[in-house]
Write a protein that binds this DNA or RNA. Structure first.
Lengths: 208, 208
DNA sequence: ATATAATGTGAATATAAATTCATATGAATG
DNA sequence: CATTCATATGAATTTATATTCACATTATAT
């Protein structure tokens, strides 16, 4: 958590610091990101930085928190609170759509998220041992789908939740090529998502 | 590439250096791994290290190369050279089985592979721009499966190859929990793999 | 207006490696 | 045995940055 000093700052300055931090953390890996660069670009003294934050990790935690919150804003809450109206695959589709919307609007946050998600050690450093939130999310969704009889009762929930989590990496790979958003996707994001769902629903075996 | 000096070394010493490097790179992220620790543990002088390698990156590249070669040894070559005898899903199954065998026998190399695969920037630093070898591998496999009519002709190869690649992350997640091999998996690896294949073949939608 | 607290500052210090280099030792050659 | 070449060594240097600190400035309260 940033120190109180940080929250007492004039909004403009606070925003400059956040913006500079997002810039630096999206452009470089955590251990390569430089406080000096952040201070310079936010136009504050290096010493001031330590008035606002405990240390580099403190700032990074804060930025990750902002990122997570921002992402949550993109999820259609009506859909999640009224789950019952939607079936499992509709919910999954909505989740994927939110991911893409979020990525489009917040490329730098997407990059930070990638850097974070792609580095388990960093996750441990920042979040401690409870770093496995994401497959848990899918487990709950799957339990719900099973209860409603929409899913093949044969599936192993623990395994499939990890698999769905792995497919998230694919989605990010698709959206985000070579450090920027893949422009091809933006034109036919629906199509891409629908193909992905088709894969998840039906697999790839030929049927007759 | 290591310098010639390195290959001129007595085998014992060369092995000590490799072993020390594998230890260090499997325990710490690339930018955190220390030449000093490697030199100490291999019982060579720090200066000697630079007789053998250009720099840290040079050593790491070499270790990654060893890892990749070792992994290739685990793939059943008979199966790949006589592809025609096996169907797509049998081949995929074999690939997953090799992954698990490799992981069991070479936990440290698995860890290095994870660190590498989980860090796209590092991949760019080490392999340059052609870092996307792996989804390419699946693309070829998929083309083969389609030609033989084993796969749903509806699927989009480009997309599905990225999806299969994402599922690799899942497999690693399953095998490798908290820095070591998940013992639960070893007892029923076949079962796990078969469930994973079931997911890929049939998806998770309930059918009647 | 003065005192007190809060914030700002950047040069100095600390830390942690990677890398170099002058020099020593050993091996091969003729 | 002397000369040349290859390898070994670790203290000294370099690089890169995070973090501290003594002091300066500005804001708030009395």
């Amino acid at each position: 958590m940033p120190k109180e000093t940080f929250f007492n700052l004039a909004e403009d300055k606070r925003d400059r610091v956040i913006d500079a931090a997002i810039n630096e953390f999206s452009a470089r890996l955590y251990h390569k990101a430089r406080i000096t660069a952040i201070a310079d670009s936010a136009d504050i003294a290096k010493g001031s930085f330590y008035q606002y934050f405990e240390d580099k990790k403190d700032l990074f935690k804060y930025i990750i928190e902002l990122t997570v919150n921002k992402k949550l804003e993109y999820i259609n809450h009506d859909m999640l609170t009224n789950k019952d109206k939607y079936n499992f695959f509709q919910l999954l589709r909505e989740i994927y759509l939110s991911s893409i919307r979020f990525a489009k609007d917040n490329p730098r946050l997407l990059s930070i998220g990638n850097i974070f998600i792609n580095n388990k050690d960093l996750q441990r450093e920042i979040w401690g041992e409870q770093a496995d939130k994401s497959s848990n999310f899918y487990r709950q969704l799957l339990e719900y789908g099973l209860r409603k009889g929409e899913l093949d009762p044969e599936i192993d929930i623990d395994l499939v939740s990890v698999l769905l989590n792995g497919l998230n990496f694919s989605l990010v790979d698709i959206i985000y090529k070579d450090g920027k958003i893949n422009p091809d996707i933006l034109d036919n994001e629906m199509e891409t998502i629908d193909k992905m769902l088709y894969f998840i629903e039906n697999g790839i075996k030929k049927r007759d």
